[in-house]
Design a protein around this nucleic acid. Structure first.
Lengths: 329, 329
DNA sequence: CTGTTAGCGCATTCAC
DNA sequence: GTGAATGCGCTAACAG
């Protein structure tokens, strides 16, 4: 049990209590390789350390190693479910354990905050879910700061997620007799790559079943023109649409209501993301829910590895996604 | 291994360029009182500093002043619109300008991450929108770390927000002939205080107009039982409901659709928060949008002041809220 | 194997 | 007014 006095114990205190030198303390606490230290000394140090509730002073450590001890995490502004925030959250605690603090930066139009943060905080690295672009990218690479992002490369590594999701969705729709299916893209540019990623999985699934290729439509986030688009789709003989995300699915649903069409009778709609709001949309939305835990773990592990803190634990990749059947299909 | 850009200039570099001592640099750059420095020297230092693009090394500064340079910001887990995140975001950049980094911590059931962060990062303060509770509170106060939160005290200071919002909503409904109005609470405990806060404002507004007191109903977030509740309300003669938030309003809308009732004919629904999704709900939701900028500014200013970085600029409190009329009323 | 020591960059006394 | 000197707590060479 740590006794909390006024001042935090320093490495010197630990050394004194363990009756060794500060260097030794440093070695055992940092698990420095190439130093052979007797198990008992090691134990003594460890004991003294947590007897005192010792925690290294980050400022001092950073000063000594010449780093800032800060890593930036850029959060996309667009609603992409809770995942990015979840990843950020987990990353925060995972890194804190290593004494480095994660500074979340939310995307803005001008990337100003990112640029400021880069110059003010001098981060050791910049992490993000999507690759940086524009001014932020320029600022970061100008300073030679390593950037780490979780592109579809990692997603692919994640058991070819798009394939299993695609199969899951198309399978569900095919079972219900749908053959002509459309894909609803978001009109947010930034999300395009993600949409394309899902689309690819869907395409492969339809092809495997000898179904006609998917039609593609892009829906405006604010619902503008959705009714007309939906009507066109239905007139073309499309009977179901797979949206790029639940958000986009909501827009399609909106279009259906505006057009006076019924869901799923006239057009079935399916999202992917399983946001809580899907339970109360009109009608409640069928979607596929991710096991956030697994995805987050993979992401965090990848980033930690990239940052030089490899995680020994490689989480299993099974069952990352499950169908959530509601009334829209 | 990426080659970092040119080494950062240090205070010594600036001193050399400005032909003064490092102490002088420190004085002018930190605007130290009680030191009389010639304007020209001052100018020379400033010039040299930004000529070199000098930024102080945070680790070194923190070491010298004995602080960690980290402040925690606890983000409530519940969906409360974008505001808390927005506040966190702004706080991040505002503090970064002062060389302190904000570490966002998301609430969890066990408060484990907060406790860990407190011991690992040794923050100078802990900020949050709501007061801390439970284990997190214990950990923070045990260490005597100052906590700063934005309770309804500040909200009230913010021009009695609940009153103006209440008046705005009731006024809108009254204009449309509604007299019997209900309030829809969220079933999330954590949100209760916020709901009560809004409710109080609504009550005062109805009373002022001699309208009957509001009925209160609590809706489950997942939509369970919403249809019955809505039906009961309508049977009771209620013609409009003010929800605690847009989220809750969506649940009411869901109940209406399930019950086969029309909105706004059978029951008008009004949210507060103006989330983007409101544009594509069924029907699109009337709500009141906050001028996030103002609220965030007030919050951030209050927190900065509390943290010892008073902001000279006291943002005006006018027009923090505007009615967003859509089809649900 | 373990102790000593020299900085890391900055804020802050204290002489000049 | 300004410059030199100290020390913050820690890491990493270098001795021993």
């Amino acid at each position: 049990m740590a006794v909390r006095g006024a001042a935090r114990p320093t490495k010197a205190d630990v050394a004194r209590l363990a009756k060794v030198s500060t260097a030794t303390v440093s070695y055992v606490l940092n698990n420095v390789e190439g130093q052979r230290i007797s198990p008992q000394t090691r134990a003594a140090v460890r004991d003294a350390a947590d007897r005192l509730g010792y925690r290294p002073n980050l400022a001092a450590r950073n000063l000594a190693v010449g780093g800032s001890g800060v890593v930036l995490y850029i959060v996309p502004r667009i609603a992409l479910g809770e995942l990015p925030m979840e990843v950020g959250s987990r990353l925060t605690t995972a890194l804190a354990r290593h004494g480095i603090v994660l500074s979340l930066q939310f995307e803005t139009d001008d990337d100003r905050n990112v640029i400021d943060a880069v110059t003010d905080l001098d981060p050791a690295a910049v992490t993000s879910v999507f690759p940086l672009t524009g001014a932020a990218l320029a600022a970061v690479s100008a300073r030679g700061i390593p950037q780490i992002h979780l592109g579809s490369a990692q997603l692919r590594a994640m058991g070819a997620l798009h394939l299993s999701i695609g199969e899951l969705r198309i399978g569900h729709l095919a079972e219900r007799g749908h053959r002509r299916i459309a894909f609803a893209h978001s009109d947010i540019d930034r999300l395009r790559p993600l949409g394309d990623y899902w689309l690819e999985g869907l395409r492969i699934a339809t092809r495997a079943r000898g179904m006609p290729d998917l039609e593609v439509a892009t829906f405006a986030t604010d619902g503008t023109g959705a009714a007309d688009q939906v009507r066109t789709l239905v007139d073309d003989g499309v009977t179901a649409v797979c949206a790029q995300s639940d958000e986009t699915a909501f827009v399609v649903l909106h279009g259906l209501r505006q057009a006076g069409l019924r869901c799923p009778e006239d057009l079935a709609v399916m999202g992917v993301d399983a946001r809580p709001l899907g339970a109360v949309s009109g009608p409640p939305l069928t979607s596929v829910g991710f096991d956030a835990r697994v995805i987050v773990e993979v992401s965090v592990a990848a980033m930690m590895a990239e940052l030089g803190y490899p995680t020994e634990h490689d989480p299993g990749i099974e069952h990352v996604a499950t169908l959530i059947q509601r009334e829209s299909t």
